[in-house]
Amino acid sequence: MKPKKVWLVTGTSKGLGLTLVKKLLKEGYRVAATSRDINMLNEEIGQHTQNFLPLQTDLVNNESVQTAIAKIVETFGTIDVVVNNAGYGQLGTLEELSDEEARQNFDVNVFGSLNIIRQVMPYFREKKSGAFFNISSIAGFLGTFPGWGIYNATKFAVAGFTEALSAEVKSLGVTATIVYPGYFKTNFLLKGSMRLATHPIADYKEARELEVIHDEQIAGNQPGDPESAASVFIQVAESDHRPLHLFLGTDAFNMANSKIETLKEQLSTFESLTKSTDFQLAAKK
């Protein structure tokens, strides 16, 4: 029998990442899992098997990532599937958030994934196969959430570089998929996974109202099932035809459709203005 794939999943001490790791191990896959808190990860996974490699990794540090990737290859011989899942939510309007707060969110949500991609690609190129799943968010497709601008920007960045990656690696037998989850019943909206602006400004009514809605109405009532999402990851990874864009959850599906309809309407309404910016051919005499 062909051995099961080797998965690398980042951000696995809680949430969707942890659920995916548990599902993969249960189904006999070999799994390397990174976390900033390896003790929490070990407690969650419980008894270790030869199929599980926990790694305490600082994804923002390229040398730490390089060491982790080398350890995975040394232990399992290869890497087949990468899930860039690590990240956190940073709330606050663009005026409220400091340069440091914004950059920290980009460091983890964007540059951490780029470090993983940079260190994994030599192995994928060598064997002419591999799959990336880069976790964006529905907020990386639809950005009209007041107070979520920096987080949105990090997730739009994930979508953007993944589109480019998919084109860059196509002839190498490697695929790249942008995953846009909606609201899933994880601890993402809880303290520790979501950071608020250090210096909020009361004038931002819409942003404050949305914070309250997330805290009092959405948290704990998310419609998405992490177990079902984990099953989708495995199904797509085992497929010969992996999508570039993968939306997870009915809420994400509906919000994406709504934006697409708005775009189509505005393209049509302003078509003449859009095309008026081309150089105009001189009228024939």
Rank of each mutant, 00 (worst) to 15 (best):
M1Y: 14
K4Q: 14
K4D: 09
W7D: 05
W7R: 14
V9M: 02
G11R: 13
G11P: 12
L16R: 01
T19L: 09
L20S: 10
K23R: 12
L24M: 11
K26P: 12
G28S: 09
A32F: 08
T34N: 10
S35N: 07
S35R: 01
D37Q: 14
N39K: 15
N39D: 05
I45Q: 07
I45T: 02
N61H: 05
V65N: 09
T67N: 15
A68C: 15
I69R: 15
K71L: 05
G77T: 06
T78P: 05
T78S: 15
V81D: 03
V81S: 02
V82D: 15
N84C: 13
A86C: 07
G87H: 00
Y88E: 08
Q90S: 04
Q90Y: 10
L91C: 06
D99Q: 11
R103K: 06
R103Q: 02
N105H: 03
F106M: 12
N109W: 01
F111Y: 06
S113P: 03
N115E: 02
I117Y: 03
M121F: 10
P122C: 08
K127Y: 03
K128D: 13
F133R: 06
N134W: 14
A139N: 03
F145P: 02
W148L: 06
I150Y: 00
I150L: 04
Y151H: 09
Y151W: 05
K155H: 04
F156C: 12
A157Y: 13
A157E: 12
E163V: 11
L165R: 00
V169D: 06
S171F: 09
S171M: 10
G173K: 14
G182T: 09
Y183F: 05
F184M: 15
F184C: 10
T186V: 13
L189H: 13
L189S: 05
K191F: 00
G192S: 11
M194F: 02
L196D: 06
A197E: 15
T198L: 01
P200G: 00
I201Q: 09
A202Q: 04
Y204C: 05
Y204L: 05
K205Y: 00
E206V: 00
R208V: 09
R208W: 05
E209P: 02
V212C: 06
V212K: 12
Q217T: 01
I218F: 01
I218L: 14
G220V: 11
N221F: 07
S228L: 07
S231G: 11
V232L: 13
F233K: 15
S239A: 14
S239F: 05
P243G: 08
L244I: 06
L244R: 03
D251Q: 09
A252W: 07
F253P: 01
N257Q: 13
E261F: 10
L263Q: 14
L263K: 08
S268D: 13
T269V: 12
T269P: 01
E271F: 00
E271D: 13
S272I: 11
L273T: 13
